[in-house]
Design a protein around this nucleic acid. Sequence first.
DNA 1: CTTGACTCTTACATCGATGTTAGGGTTTAA
DNA 2: TTAAACCCTAACATCGATGTAAGAGTCAAG
Lengths: 125, 125
Amino acid sequence: MKIGELAKRTGVSIRSLRYYEQQGLLVPLRHDNGYREYSPFVVDQVRTIQLYLNLGLSTEQIAGFLQCVLKNKEAFCDEVLPIYQQKLKEIDAQIQLLSHIKQNLIDRIDSILLERTHQSEEERK
Amino acid sequence: MKIGELAKRTGVSIRSLRYYEQQGLLVPLRHDNGYREYSPFVVDQVRTIQLYLNLGLSTEQIAGFLQCVLKNKEAFCDEVLPIYQQKLKEIDAQIQLLSHIKQNLIDRIDSILLERTHQSEEERK
DNA sequence: CTTGACTCTTACATCGATGTTAGGGTTTAA
DNA sequence: TTAAACCCTAACATCGATGTAAGAGTCAAG
C-alpha cells in the first residue's frame, strides 16, 4: 500500500510516517516512480511505534530495539528493560518536581484567598 | 550597577537578564555608552521573576502582573489568582498523564521480569 | 597607550515530533 | 486530455528559556 493508505489505516499522519522512516523505524520499498510501498504488516509496526512513543520513548530509543521486539517477546530483547527503567526514573523525577510545584501553587492560592477573606472581614466592620 | 554585577548578585546569567528585558520584565536605564544601569532594587525584582519562572509561569504571564505584585501583595493583583488556578490545572493534567505512563511502564517491567523468571524455571528443569 | 575585562547587538542552536508550505512529478477517472 | 487526487523532496515553523559565538565598542588599571 502507499503512504496515504497506511496513514488512513493507522491514524498516523503522512508527515510522521516519513519522519519515522528518516529515523530508521520504517524502511518501505520504493516504486520506480519514487513512491513508497508498504507491506500490510507495517500497519502493526506503526502501531507498535506509536505505543512506544506514547510511553515517552524517543524515536532513537525505539530504533534501538524495534527490530527485536517485532520478532520476539519484549523479555527477549535486552535493550528494552534498561530503557524502561531509565524512563521510569525520569518520570518519577518529573512527577516529583510537578508535585512540588503543585503544592507551592496550592499554598499560594490558599494564601491569596485567606488574605482576601481577611480583607472582606475588615471591610464589613 | 551594570549587568555583570546584577548577574553575580542574582545568580542569573547575563543572557537571561537581557532576555527578561526583551520580554518587558526589566527596564534598566541606559548610559550614554549604551550600558545598562540597574537600580539595587532590581535584585529583588529578578529574584521575584525567578520565583515565578520556577512555578512554571511564562515570561509573558509574569509580565502581566509583575508590576502589580512588586508594589502590592499578590492578593491585591487580580491577574494572579486565575493564572495560578490555570497553572494548577495544567500541572494536575501533566501529573495524571505521567502517572498513567508510569503505571504502564511498571506493568511492562513487571511483565518482562515475570516472563524471565518463568524462563529461568523452564531452563532449570 | 595598551591590554584585559566588560558591555553591546544580532543571530544561530537547543530538543523533537509534527504541521505546513512550496514547487514539482504521477496516477486515475471522467 | 484534463483535472482531481496522490506522491515526492526540501525546508521552515513550533515552543521558550537559555547557551554560545561573532564582531565591535568601552573602560580601567598598569
